[in-house]
Nucleic acid binder design. Structure first.
Lengths: 244, 244
DNA sequence: GGGCCGACAAAACCCATGTTATGACATTTA
DNA sequence: TAAATGTCATAACATGGGTTTTGTCGGCCC
């Protein structure tokens, strides 16, 4: 992927949150991004580490996870193309979680120092990043509600709805039939369930005609019923959030 | 509470995250805070609303909650004195959750527009707020791990450990014996448990000698064992996080 | 081709936590 | 003072989801 494509994708990211002036655009183009590809399940960052670069996802999926001392895992975020994965590390010294590639991943990396200078010189871009950080926090809150108060069926349905909407926004893919590159174990770890139970619930959603599956391809068959089962309301994604 | 006390508390907040220059201090003193007191369980903000003011807690506790359509509640944050409660609303147009007073509350309010101008004029303060927002996100992640992957006993122990540490930081109170002004129902809603089960677990923590209770006063009797039961590691609170 | 491995599937069993109910206090309100 | 209300406590019972196990299938390596 050449550098002008990278610039364009990053620019589109910022413009989705804030109108950018000509000067802002020039500064974005001047950011020293380096493109890199990594394999699925590579660690991008580990808890306790102090990172030096900030990463933007060009292609593929990643996730944040936290581990308990005895090795249980909770996946706390899924990260999609067009997102910065470590705004945390812009201002926090030490990572409080791991970041791992879910699929093969194409990344654009920029030194943290450069990004910090950039947002100081370019407040509109700074605000765009603020918005992104706040939206991720909002997603965390919705996931807390999901894991804390919904049963397994609603939880899983909710995750599928969220993926549908976010995939659509992120890659402009067909929202009603998408490749879900997560194992049932990973789904369980994102939902606070065991893989065995994820299997049961997936099957039940399928026999009830809400979704269809072929390998890991998930298709939404009956969006209204899936949305109802999930109690899904996309407000928490703040999709229309753009400042002028 | 007079205005110089307010300024001092707000200043202390910022200085806990970033060194402030003389100019920064002057600008903080010039912020048009208005002090207000509200009763316990008053709503400060409701989901879907568009707020116009930003609120700083001078005294008392508040919480963020989300509701499912059929009325189940998850408490997703506890807010303590010395914290800004709605950084979200600095850059997001529409609230994705409710904020409610847990106790009687003394607040200092400032118009959002004023705060936005302030952080533009005063980047050090802006960074301090960034740090706060990122730390709250980190707490959300730890709560996700807690609710998703720990059993009821660890979960509750974890919450008690977190309160102990945060109370200590926020009000300089004795961390080992604090007033916990939450009902068992509220505790359950923060942990994804029913009040009946919270009662069972509290009792068991007490009979095992980890904590003592007198009314809602909680005392930590055996911090090492409570911490172990909770798998508590304060890294996620980023307590030492201060930039220069 | 054969062996290995990861993911999915499904059955049997069980327990941590939910549900429902009821009583005892303490606090507030009339 | 009485009534109403909120909170805590505790018991009996129910169940959603966990645990364990065993099997199948497809992909990959030698």
């Amino acid at each position: 992927m050449d550098i002008s494509t990278v610039t364009e994708k990053v620019l589109r990211k910022f413009e989705s949150r804030m109108a950018m002036g000509a000067d802002d655009r020039a500064q974005i183009a001047a950011l020293p991004f380096k493109v890199r590809t990594i394999d699925a399940s590579t660690y991008m960052l580990r808890e306790g580490q102090r990172p030096t670069r900030c990463t933007f996802i060009l292609d593929g999926l990643a996730y944040r996870q936290k581990l308990t001392p005895n090795g249980e895992r909770e996946i706390v975020s899924i990260l999609m193309p067009g997102e910065f994965v470590d705004l945390q590390n812009l201002f926090l010294d030490e990572s409080d979680h791991d970041i791992q590639a879910l699929t093969r991943l194409t990344l654009a990396e920029v030194p943290i120092a450069a990004l910090r200078l950039f947002i100081e010189a370019c407040p509109a871009a700074g605000q765009a990043l603020w918005i992104d950080a706040l939206v991720e926090s909002s997603i965390h809150r919705e996931w807390l509600l999901n894991v804390g108060r919904r049963n397994a069926r609603s939880r899983l349905a909710h995750l599928l709805c969220e993926f549908s909407v976010r995939f659509q926004k992120s890659t402009l893919a067909d929202a009603m039939a998408y490749e879900l590159p997560m194992t049932q174990e990973q789904l369980g770890d994102a939902l606070g369930l065991t893989p065995v139970h994820v299997n049961r619930v997936l099957k039940s959603l399928e026999t009830d005609g809400l979704i269809a599956r072929k390998k890991r391809q998930v298709s939404v068959i009956d969006w209204p019923r899936l949305r109802d089962a999930a109690e899904f309301n996309e407000r928490y994604l703040h999709l229309g959030q753009i400042r002028r």
